[in-house]
Amino acid sequence: MGHSRFRRSIVHVNATLARVVGDEEGMSTAEYAIGTIAAAAFGAILYTVVTGDNIVSALTGIIGKALNTSVG
């Protein structure tokens, strides 16, 4: 999944959550269910991105550079 497609997905999930959560007056059970599913989907996407090999490798590299930097 490309970065722009991922960003569009996040924007769509955030917009859906804002619509569902923004106006609590008169929300039906179906709207709560949609909001819950959207939040779970966002969490799954975020978990997949954070635990992906590229992110883990990048963070390991950054931490390694920080630990090996000499101040002098």
Rank of each mutant, 00 (worst) to 15 (best):
G72L: 15
A66W: 04
K65L: 12
R19Q: 04
A15C: 03
T60D: 12
V20M: 06
I63V: 10
R7I: 09
A41D: 07
V13W: 07
D53C: 02
L46W: 13
Y32D: 08
H3A: 15
M1N: 13
H3W: 11
H3V: 15
V11W: 13
T16W: 07
M27C: 13
L17F: 01
I63Q: 02
A33R: 13
I34F: 05
G43Y: 02
N68W: 09
V11R: 15
N14R: 06
T16I: 06
V50Q: 15
T69Q: 05
A33T: 14
M1Q: 11
S4K: 09
V20D: 04
I45N: 00
V50E: 14
S70D: 08
H12Y: 10
E31C: 04
T51C: 06
L59I: 11
H12P: 00
R19P: 02
R19T: 07
A15I: 00
T51N: 01
F6T: 04
A44K: 09
H3C: 15
S9M: 09
A18F: 11
N68V: 02
A30R: 04
N54Y: 12
I37C: 09
R19H: 00
N68H: 10
D23V: 15
E25C: 05
S28C: 00
R7Q: 10
A58C: 05
S28L: 03
E25I: 12
E24C: 08
E24T: 14
I55C: 03
L59A: 06
I63A: 01
I62W: 06
T60P: 01
I34H: 07
R8G: 09
A58K: 03
G35C: 01
M1R: 14
G2Y: 12
T29M: 13
R8P: 04
M1Y: 13
A33L: 14
H12F: 09
A15K: 09
I55Q: 01
E25D: 05
G52N: 03
G64W: 01
F6P: 00
R8T: 10
A40G: 05
G26S: 01
A30F: 03
K65W: 04
G35M: 03
I37T: 12
L59K: 11
T60G: 04
A66M: 08
S57V: 09
R8N: 15
A41R: 04
G64V: 06
G22S: 02
V50Y: 15
S4W: 07
L17H: 00
N68A: 08
A41N: 01
I34Y: 05
V13Q: 04
N68M: 06
S57M: 03
M27V: 14
I10P: 00
G2H: 12
H3I: 15
G52H: 03
Y47G: 11
T69A: 10
S4E: 10
G43R: 03
S9F: 06
N14D: 13
A44H: 13
V56E: 09
E24P: 14
R8V: 10
A44T: 11
V71Q: 05
I62G: 00
Y32F: 10
G64N: 12
V50A: 13
S70F: 07
I10N: 02
T16L: 07
